[in-house]
Amino acid sequence: MLSTLIAKTFWLPEQASTFAKSHDALFYFIYWTMVIFFVAIVGTMIYFAVKYKKRSDDDRTSPLEGNTKLELAWSILPSFLLIVMFAWGFKGYMSMLIPPANATDVHVTGYKWGWNFTYHTGDVGNNELIVPLGQPIRLIMSSEQTSPDDMAVLHSFYVPAFRIKRDVLPYRYTVLWFEATELGSFDIFCTEYCGTGHSNMIGKVIVVPPEDWEAAISSGRDFVDDGSMGTLAEFGEMTFGRAGCPACHSVEGQRLTGPALNGVFGREEAIEGGAPVMVDEDYLRESIMEPQAKIVNGYPRTMPTYAGQLSPDQIMGLVEYIKTLQ
């Protein structure tokens, strides 16, 4: 037991993403600040306890009731350290929020109890996320129900070796990105309590050399049964036609009943009676499931909801298809 304790890095797991190094530097800065303050406080306490231990019933004690200079000093001086911690943590947090433009998107679906990973190629992996070494990966995550009788619940996607974590919400997309720096296999844990199988909701990230990546993910099964479909976006294009979307949405720029969809992704749209929104995956999804929520200025409120009519895969495909429209 003891040997296992010593053999491992005492505080943090291995570093396997670009975030890990900068995270750990901040971690140890705060850690040593904590240690120094702790030793100073408890050391002083022990020193006083020994030095001023009761000697006799005739002990006289100091009339000291405070010291303004000392009190001001210990109120103000540590604040500078706190500001450094805050600013450093802020910087790290922002870098985790903003993925690079060249990141590859992978859709993540959390369910009770496991993870599905859908790649742009249309391949699906279960509980195994395969990513290329040294390339930024952007995860578009949502939680789905396993059966119509049950509810989709909160999960959280956590890879300790990458130092990343983000809650996965029902019927909504949250985004997380990373770039793996080590080949190998790393734990994925669910860290938002999700019921009976919570602790079994364990997956692996497998980091492979970039040249092996396409082959590695295509070893997974194809999520479209008929085997005819290619990429996720192509599947989306098929769905787009089948669900009747072209009746109101052009993909070449004409104004029909609804807005044209080419070039819409990543654009800022003016919204009727609300603040402008940046068109991202979450807005596209919301506009399919709950079209009345945020209507683009100047368009009628005529689109029906597709909630319950499209499968999560179809929504995923539609979103990816719309992203490809220029």
């Binding site: 900068s22 995270h23 901040l26 971690f27 705060i30 850690y31 600040t33 904590m34 706190l82 911690m85 805050f86 450093w88 943590g89 802020f90 910087k91 790290g92 947090y93 985790m96 959280s156 956590y158 300790p160 130092r163 990343i164 974590k165 860290t191 938002e192």
Partner: peptide, 14 residues
């Protein structure tokens, strides 16, 4: 302190 700092809380949360 490690939990009030944003970047380190991401790793340690939950």
């Amino acid at each position: 302190l490690l939990l009030s700092t944003l970047a380190t809380d991401v790793h340690l949360h939950d």
